[in-house]
């Protein structure tokens, strides 16, 4: 009898012990995240001011700023979004709604799964060999935007497919029963219902692209850029100009990498400030995505 009691109490203690261990291990991640934020905030928060946002990089740490970097990030993101969103959504619609079960579909699926696992720096090497030197796009915003667009394409494809898959077959059948073609069904029923899921995927993809450094380093994104790309809006007709996509550029993570690699402490403060901005941007993007996903799960009940 005593034996059984010790057995039960030992069994209970094992559970309690593991419960604590699990909480501790989860805390490893959470504490690191917190330490990261605090560390960057302590070092960098004082550097973030109007002068920092509106100055070009400089030899003098206290005069340097991130104007060309954040404008560059914005420009590259426009190209990335323009390339990856339509291509990703279209590919996902084909694979989820149209593709038959055959070897080519399997091949595309395996290919996309593999692309998602290719290290980002490999995309950079492809961009260097292909975009910069074969297609002569140069070390431009266009090259960078396309590279990052291809890099995040699998994220958008997977997210779109998942949200299309969660729409019940009834919706499709009802639409066909009314005489709609497949595309009419996709366009006026499936895409609207899938918008939330697609938006989540797009946000996650762009937040990933904003923080990517390695693939842009390899295409030779210059780190000392003291000019802005030409403005897209012109005073003379046709008023819109695409010249900016050919401009050289720098982006926030590359500017940060440049400052972190310098030995002087003052530049590290600039790096911390840039890092803080990057971190707040990516974390709020992700928080937004989590929020949308949460709202969707509450709203839509099939």
């Amino acid at each position: 009898m005593n034996n059984l009691e010790t057995l039960i109490s030992r069994s209970l203690w094992q559970d309690r012990f593991f419960n604590v261990l699990g909480i501790l291990c989860t805390c490893v991640g959470l504490v690191t995240l917190l330490a990261l934020l605090v560390d960057l905030a302590v070092d960098g928060a004082t550097r973030i001011n109007w002068q920092f946002m509106t100055s070009f990089p400089s030899r003098f740490a206290n005069k340097a700023g991130i104007l060309s970097a954040w404008v560059g990030t914005l420009a590259v993101m426009v190209v990335t979004a323009g390339a990856a969103i339509p291509l990703g959504i279209a590919a996902a619609i084909y694979l989820e709604e149209y593709a038959g079960k055959n070897w080519f579909t399997d091949f595309i699926e395996i290919n996309i799964a593999n692309l998602a696992g290719v290290p980002s720096i490999i995309y950079g090497l492809m961009a260097l060999g292909l975009f910069v030197y074969k297609f002569h796009l140069g070390e431009s915003i266009l090259s960078a935007g396309l590279t990052l667009g291809f890099l995040v394409l699998p994220i958008i494809i997977v997210a779109t497919r998942e949200s299309l898959r969660s729409i019940p077959a009834d919706i499709r059948e009802a639409s066909y029963a009314q005489g709609a073609t497949q595309w009419q069904t996709v366009w006026s029923h499936l895409l609207p219902y899938a918008t939330g899921g697609i938006a989540t995927g797009v946000i996650i993809a762009l937040s990933r692209a904003i923080g990517e450094t390695a693939p842009l380093v390899t295409i030779g994104a210059l780190t000392f850029i003291a000019f802005l790309p030409p403005t897209p809006i012109q005073a003379t007709p046709p008023f819109l100009s695409l010249d900016w996509i050919w401009s050289k550029f720098t982006v926030l993570p590359i500017q940060m990498f440049n400052w972190v690699s310098r030995p002087q402490k003052e530049f590290h403060l600039n790096a911390a400030a840039t890092g803080l901005i990057l971190l707040v941007m990516t974390l709020s993007f992700n928080a937004l995505a989590i929020y949308i996903r949460y709202r969707m799960r509450q709203r839509i009940k099939w």
Binding site: L33, L279, L283
Partner: peptide
């Protein structure tokens, strides 16, 4: 954690 830019 995996969304934090690696340069950070």
């Amino acid at each position: 954690l995996s969304a934090v830019p690696t340069v950070v």
